Computed example of a mutant assay.
Amino acid sequence: MLERKQLKDRTQVTFILPENTPDGPVSVVGDFNHWDPASHPLRSRGDGTRSTTVALPANSAHSFRYLAAGDYWFDDEHADAHDGANSRVHT
């Protein structure tokens, strides 16, 4: 799931997944962090979910995926769009 908060010239996008689906650590990777899994790991929120927030330029579009333990890549079913291999978020 994606949540957005508009700032002046940026949009804070929060990427949210259930706490244990999938098991183990998960990161959001995309063109906004050079596909680096160390940049945005999801952290527990105490409400049964985990998340990370990324500030992106307003009025832009970005490709992303999730990377879980065991080199398991997956898309966000609630993304704004999909471009074949990746999920897309629009700010």
Rank of each mutant, 00 (worst) to 15 (best):
T21Y: 11
D75G: 10
Q6N: 10
P25R: 13
D36W: 01
P18V: 01
D75H: 11
D71W: 05
P25N: 13
A68T: 09
H90K: 14
E3P: 05
P18I: 05
L42F: 03
R10C: 00
P57R: 14
Y66L: 06
A61R: 10
H62M: 05
D83A: 06
A38P: 05
A81P: 02
A68I: 00
T49P: 03
A38N: 12
V54L: 00
Y66D: 06
S39E: 06
V89C: 03
T14E: 10
N59M: 06
T21D: 15
S51W: 03
K8D: 15
F64V: 01
E19C: 04
F64T: 02
V26M: 10
T91P: 01
D9E: 15
P22L: 08
S27R: 06
N59A: 14
D71I: 04
A38W: 01
H78K: 14
G84E: 09
A81N: 11
P22T: 13
T49G: 09
H40I: 03
N59G: 12
D75Y: 02
R43G: 04
P41I: 08
F15T: 02
G48I: 10
T21L: 14
T91A: 02
H78M: 00
T21I: 14
P22V: 10
T52G: 02
V29N: 02
G46F: 06
S51R: 10
H34W: 14
R88E: 11
L56Y: 00
P37S: 11
A55M: 12
E3Y: 03
G84L: 08
V13P: 03
A58K: 12
V13H: 02
P41F: 05
A55E: 15
R65C: 04
T53W: 01
D80R: 05
D9I: 06
E3D: 14
A55R: 09
H78P: 03
A58C: 10
N86V: 00
G24N: 08
S87G: 11
V28D: 02
V54E: 01
N86Y: 10
L56V: 07
Y66E: 08
D76I: 06
S60G: 15
G70A: 13
L67R: 12
F32L: 07
R65E: 10
T91H: 04
E19W: 01
Q12C: 10
P41Q: 11
L42V: 06
R50Q: 09
F64I: 03
G84V: 08
D76R: 00
R4N: 04
S44T: 09
E77Y: 14
R88F: 04
Q12L: 12
D76V: 00
V26D: 07
W35V: 03
D47F: 06
K8N: 15
H34G: 15
D36C: 04
A58N: 14
